[in-house]
Design a protein around this nucleic acid. Sequence first.
DNA 1: AAACACAATGCAAACGTTTGCATTTATTTT
DNA 2: AAAATAAATGCAAACGTTTGCATTGTGTTT
Lengths: 344, 344
Amino acid sequence: MVSKKQTTIQDIAKALNITASTVSRAMNDHPKISQATKNMVIEKAREMQYQPNAMASNLRKGKANTVGMIVPRINRHFFSNIINGVESILNPAGYNLIICQSEERVSKEIENVKTLISNRVSGILMSLSIETQDVKHLQKVMNHRIPLVLFDRVSNKLPISCVENDDELGAYDMTIHLIDQGYTNFMWMGGPRNVFIYKNRYCGYKKALESRKLKPAQMQIFEGHPTLQVALDFMRNYLEHNKAPDVVFATSDYMAMGAIQACQEKGLKIPDDIAVAGYANEPFSELISPKLTTVEQYSEEIGKAAARLLLEEMLSENDEVIPRKTILRPRLIVRESTVKSKQE
Amino acid sequence: MVSKKQTTIQDIAKALNITASTVSRAMNDHPKISQATKNMVIEKAREMQYQPNAMASNLRKGKANTVGMIVPRINRHFFSNIINGVESILNPAGYNLIICQSEERVSKEIENVKTLISNRVSGILMSLSIETQDVKHLQKVMNHRIPLVLFDRVSNKLPISCVENDDELGAYDMTIHLIDQGYTNFMWMGGPRNVFIYKNRYCGYKKALESRKLKPAQMQIFEGHPTLQVALDFMRNYLEHNKAPDVVFATSDYMAMGAIQACQEKGLKIPDDIAVAGYANEPFSELISPKLTTVEQYSEEIGKAAARLLLEEMLSENDEVIPRKTILRPRLIVRESTVKSKQE
DNA sequence: AAACACAATGCAAACGTTTGCATTTATTTT
DNA sequence: AAAATAAATGCAAACGTTTGCATTGTGTTT
């Protein structure tokens, strides 16, 4: 059994009849400490079950080798894959990650920011909550000179480096694919268009239609919380009172799934009676039947890109950093739900 | 623009012509500080963009109000839901969470443990990596008197509180359901049975069969890495050379999905020609067609239970805590994949 | 009016490191 | 052999809080 208190470098110093400075330097492999002393110290440290006190060390050094990351939710594949990407860059570089969830609430997001500033993290990576409009809390991070990089849900109200998907292009590519398949009567479904990503996806969709001389104005548009249930409810009701469109382009796989279920309930065959496309390439999208045409966003790459930008800012000597943008091109994945069987 | 250095309580004290102690007490709402002073301090703090230095505070107090959590991977619904459960208990109690991934490697797990000890977390929650056999690193945590609770992937080599699923019971219930549906010719699929959870699920399956006088010995058993692809490959090959069983009980939804795909390729109707059951209630399991019968594990509850146990240990005055176990009962979810249509 | 209680604040040490500078000891140069 | 250099370690302050105890000032009791 160990004693009540934790071992400190002082204890080790006392035991070896040297000073704490020497112990500290020995543990940190300082060049001016003799190998003999280093060995002695390291052995003693092990013997006494010494674990450095990161709080004391960080305090003295004025910073922790820790990066804070704020995401709306971790139980979304998109975000947890991004986290993996981030770790794959930051861990080898010697940083630990503190992950916070905003739960899509701006109040929690502000809370998280405060915690991270208080912990004097070396940098912050974040994706804004769906509620976030005002960015005072981001300004605060910048005032504290903490490097900050936004990803996916970004803001352009402040000069901050960020990593984005080219959502407009993703939606554009998808729409062109759908038009090429011969569909003309569209329905668009998406999350609220005050959120950048949905706005951009809508723009891409609109541009594609216009480029082929179709009139987006007359197309159906449904905007709502991007979940299965919301889309299902809407679509059930819609099909009750209206003629089905040729194709539903849902800018969320969950909404696409809702639409599919509503259609199947009505006895509509997909894709022969109605086609459905999604967005995000959620894991289930290739497990369902018909397999869902969607857009892959390379989430892990987003994390890597964001981590690289942050790393550069953290290591930069320069006080004033020029914000940079990384824009990733998504990839269209064509599956069964939008390609009519040959015999038709 | 702010000055290069961060504001400290000293700066606030100087600005108000009082001492740092008073500022500290005012910020922490100490009863002996007058309301007037508190207001003054708080106002000044806001004005000067003060953010408390958690490192200094933690160092002085000897502990951080932080809990460390180690999971094999965060991009599994099972684990990310557990994390949500943990946060729902720990955040209101005033704790922050540091989440670490072991990536199923014992070496990373040991690394993580060291980091958490160094950061003097108030407690650790962990689920062991699939590799972990030796538990010296857990002993180390205990030596440092850091409260520790294991969940899901536990070890009984040390006296540690833990939260487990009753996997045996879950599999038992499922098997009984399948027998009741009239299936007799079984195939069992699962992960490696040296892993506790798969072993237990197998035991439950076996016990159920025996209780109904069926001979498990003659049933088909496939043991492999619990992924869709592995199960798909196996099943394709199996159906090529053998008569299909009545029912496949896969103790992983992904394996079940692989089996389903192989069957559908062969033109077998589910559940009429062959039934398939899974385990874990992955999100996709109710999105596919037919909807998959499976077992819900209440992952969020696991997190809550673990957090509650930890909280008690952290708050306990008592130095020696008696380890406690919470065992959660999973719930059978009967869906389409195992229930024959009425007209048959 | 002296003695007391009480509220509010100040003083100073402590938490465990790190690090610039000073000191000691050993080695090399003149 | 004295002086200069190099190598290894020690000294002490600092990081920004918190907190037990001491001090001050104000109002209350005898």
